[in-house]
Design a binder for these strands. Sequence first.
DNA 1: TCAATCCCAAGCGATCTTGTCGGGATTGAG
DNA 2: CTCAATCCCGACAAGATCGCTTGGGATTGA
Lengths: 176, 176
Amino acid sequence: MAPTATESAPAAHRPSFHGTGAVAFSTKGEYGVRLMVQLGRHYGTGPASLAEIAAAEDMPRAYLEQLAFVLRDAGLVVSTRGAHGGYELGRAPSSIPMSEVLRALEGPLAPMICATDEPGHDLACDRTSSCTVNLLWIRVRDAVAGALDGVTLADLVPQRLVSIQPAASEGALTAS
Amino acid sequence: MAPTATESAPAAHRPSFHGTGAVAFSTKGEYGVRLMVQLGRHYGTGPASLAEIAAAEDMPRAYLEQLAFVLRDAGLVVSTRGAHGGYELGRAPSSIPMSEVLRALEGPLAPMICATDEPGHDLACDRTSSCTVNLLWIRVRDAVAGALDGVTLADLVPQRLVSIQPAASEGALTAS
DNA sequence: TCAATCCCAAGCGATCTTGTCGGGATTGAG
DNA sequence: CTCAATCCCGACAAGATCGCTTGGGATTGA
């Protein structure tokens, strides 16, 4: 294969991180969600190949594979092997809460080690007596979980390319 | 030099990350908040030295210094130099929202690069047309900001062990 | 004077992220 | 049957960040 000159420089890896600040999802989260959205579009029309999606969203195919495996192991997508194979959603988009997707991709929603949302968590903090701070992390964790539970994949799939309104007054909350 | 056995083992650095998953604050956030809580306890009784606080909370003093500088630059604490110096809160604990503390310590509350909460953010995302995904990150960002705005330092300082109201229904969302 | 304390910059090792690479296994189509 | 498309999977490399230490200053009260 002659490498076409149009190929931009190898670019090595992406230069910097995504979430440089607090409360940051990684590209795993971003790419994975974008992948799910694409699958949501194809829902009902048979499996879609990763090569296709990678091209459409301009994401590295080999990396997408890794995320796809995770999503498959979590039961969110099903795969079909062989020629003309690919991935498709395991359920209707409206019954896939984003909390499930993000948890599969990035692990448990734990702002802090003492605030895991895993089953038997039992506060790993040994200074529980003076650890009122814990209250804070739990609040954050619940806020995020609530926000993520309230959005399903269907909410993110532009069903028929509705002319996307400028989001109107989105920030009802006090987004300082 | 030979570290005395009584000295807590070098322990190298902390073994693993704090929040291995999504939505993770780092130790900067944790230590910084604990520092602020200690200062909240001392509020009104003159400056407290870092050595004192580091011992009380079992955190590395030199590392605490770095966090203290950040908090000082953010105007949250004031410092007194020289002997018998130290740090004290710049305001009453009840007028210090934790959102301000965390933002100072960890940077902007940005779950994703396209959802910064900085002044002129202008969505850096170039595929805005199909980027309904953005909605999700903004929701999460607002949820976290809301949760953090609703807690002040006073809520975390066990003034007289005031019974802090039990954070509403806790285990409601253990579904997943 | 002197010790306590804040101030500050540089640097180091471990760990995580962000991909790449190379090869397998499985299937539909010609 | 042959072949190409596709999923499957493990290893690894570059780089960034985190957590923390070191080593010195500057400033003040006793």
